[in-house]
Design a binder for these strands. Structure first.
Length: 284
DNA sequence: AACTGTCCCTGCAAGC
DNA sequence: TGCTTGCAGGGACAGT
């Protein structure tokens, strides 16, 4: 599932291959993908504009347009952004197609597809000056641990300033933006903290470990191009999978020995309606 | 304030 | 083999 490292990998692909190009034509298939506004708003907002920059906050991807508007893309569960030469046969569930003119670096005409079987994802054209009303939850997003500078003292305030279960806290996009189910489990395991550990009880040493774990794991996952699970949908802009799944120590390893302590067995339980993986021996 | 449950949707896997 | 059922999950939202 696309989380911060996967979205960042897609953003880098867009930066290299889409920025500077003009959108000559737009097709919107399924209306649900553009439910925030409308088919017409997305088509008219994009057609004829040139993409000038990319951005990311948490799992939200943005494209700046020379019109002054911007596009927000959220992949949610199963969304993909894929770049393909014009005329390539499209996969099922291709809901939005942007036709891209050639540019100096990119001599061919391409199509940028938004593909999304489960249709939870969305594409929105919005006015950045009106983000509070156009995309209220985007405006209320918490700190991005990679794009912003998440210092230890900031994390300390976040953790001790409330009394939440640690996993729920990491997953709360209004507190820290970008961590999803996979990386929450990996981070808590690296920090040796139980998912149900109360945030207000963390020691200074545990906060330091958590801080290091967040930055190290997200950084390593970005360097590896994200995680592509066996069943999963995540691939980058060119359709390539990531490598970080090979470094997972708990996610999807139910019943296998803990790679850190060598003696515990990874268990899976359900918390907040989300599957949670941990080593009961390492994590306190 | 924090937590639980529900909903949205599709593809895949397990169970009968 | 072929059906049905359940599960996965991001995030908004309502209710406790």
């Amino acid at each position: 599932m696309p989380e911060l490292p996967e979205v960042e990998t897609v953003r880098r692909g867009l930066d290299a291959r889409v920025v500077g190009r003009r959108v000559s034509r737009v097709e919107v298939g399924r209306e649900r993908t553009v439910r925030r506004t409308s088919r017409d708003a997305v088509i008219s907002g994009l057609t004829g504009t040139t993409i000038t920059a990319t951005g990311r906050r948490g799992k939200y991807l943005t494209l700046s347009l020379d019109s002054g508007d911007a596009v927000m893309v959220h992949l949610r569960m199963s969304g993909q952004l894929l770049l393909a030469p014009s005329g390539t046969v499209r996969p099922p569930h291709t809901h939005v197609v942007m036709h891209l003119d050639p540019s100096e670096e990119h001599p061919d005409t391409d199509e940028l597809w938004f593909v999304d079987p489960r249709t939870f994802g969305e594409v929105v054209v919005f006015d950045p000056d009106e983000v509070d009303t156009d995309l209220p939850e985007f405006a209320r997003l918490g700190i991005d641990p990679i794009a912003d500078d998440l210092t230890r003292s900031h994390l300390r305030r976040i953790v001790l300033g409330r009394d939440r279960q640690m996993k729920a806290l990491l997953l709360d996009q209004h507190v820290i933006a970008g961590i999803g189910n996979i990386y929450a489990d990996e981070i808590l395991h690296r920090a040796r903290l139980r998912p149900d550990r109360r945030s207000s009880t963390l020691t200074g040493q545990q906060i330091t470990r958590l801080h290091t774990a967040i930055l190290d794991i997200l950084g390593a996952a970005i360097a590896a191009g994200g995680s592509t699970l066996r069943d999963a949908q995540y691939v980058d802009l060119m359709g390539e999978g990531g490598e970080y799944q090979d470094a997972h120590r708990v996610y999807g390893r139910t019943g296998l020995p803990c790679l850190t302590c060598g003696r515990g067995t990874i268990v899976r339980l359900v918390a907040n309606g989300r599957s949670t993986h941990l080593c009961p021996r390492c994590q306190r």
